[in-house]
Design a binder for these strands. Sequence first.
DNA 1: GTGCCACTTCAAGTCAAGTTGAAGTCAAGG
DNA 2: CCTTGACTTCAACTTGACTTGAAGTGGCAC
Lengths: 143, 143
Amino acid sequence: MDIAEVAQRSGVPASTLRFYEEKGLIASTGRRGLRRVFDAGVLERLALIALGRSAGFSLDEIGRMFSPGKGVRIDRRLLAAKAEELDGTIRKLSAMREGLLHAAACPAPSHMECPTFRRLLGLAGAGGLGGRDKKKPSSKGRS
Amino acid sequence: MDIAEVAQRSGVPASTLRFYEEKGLIASTGRRGLRRVFDAGVLERLALIALGRSAGFSLDEIGRMFSPGKGVRIDRRLLAAKAEELDGTIRKLSAMREGLLHAAACPAPSHMECPTFRRLLGLAGAGGLGGRDKKKPSSKGRS
DNA sequence: GTGCCACTTCAAGTCAAGTTGAAGTCAAGG
DNA sequence: CCTTGACTTCAACTTGACTTGAAGTGGCAC
């Protein structure tokens, strides 16, 4: 498979594939001339990377996970830790969602007069939850 | 209040306050010499900003929310939409957490041989969930 | 054999949300 | 009056994950 096929099959842009290779996240099995040749395993690897990213791992973390050998070799404690972290995030997000929903339905003329909303303010200050960014739509390139 | 006091009372660094003012998210009521003077309302505003950020709004979105007037004037549909978005995120995060937990405890020698883990892979590909970044600890400056 | 165009490389740009540094200002205390 | 140092401005840097552009190469269809 050349890079275009991997891109097309995985939905990951070629530029990203090169970037990932540069970062050591994926590897091409060789070259045909200048062009990278990938084997099918790279698709699994890419799925794994997507999974990791979804779970909140950085590319570096993901890289560390399978840089050792060919196997996936993910440290289970790392997974458990990440799961716990996720759990905290979920809790905060849930509280926020509740508050948002209430605020949306709140009868008070101004949100500032709503006790629930005001409670939410404190929550925001307290919570460690950071800014989230949406994933890019990435809806291009797929036929 | 000068910037230092606002910083101290809100926990938001002065550099960030200047940045926020530049972005139109907060306003100083005047100057004493060169120095900004803020009134107490800015603290509420900052709480609101923190809330918005926690809920996943970008600074621009937050700015749009209260740029109109002095009042908070948050569009309730926007809140509801954000809550729904949050809900989706929570769902994905939860699934991810389940999978992570399973993977951490999974008896299969390689994660690739574990059906649950493989199911997770599909999930990651499907989910729209993007990369998350942790909030910085920000444990400086607070006494 | 030759031309095209998908591939290659490498550097630089983007975005968000700030942070950091240098150089300058000025209110207040001694 | 003079020093101090907290404030000011402005620009450049940071991080993470890529994308984009320019310039070059070469595999493959014809």
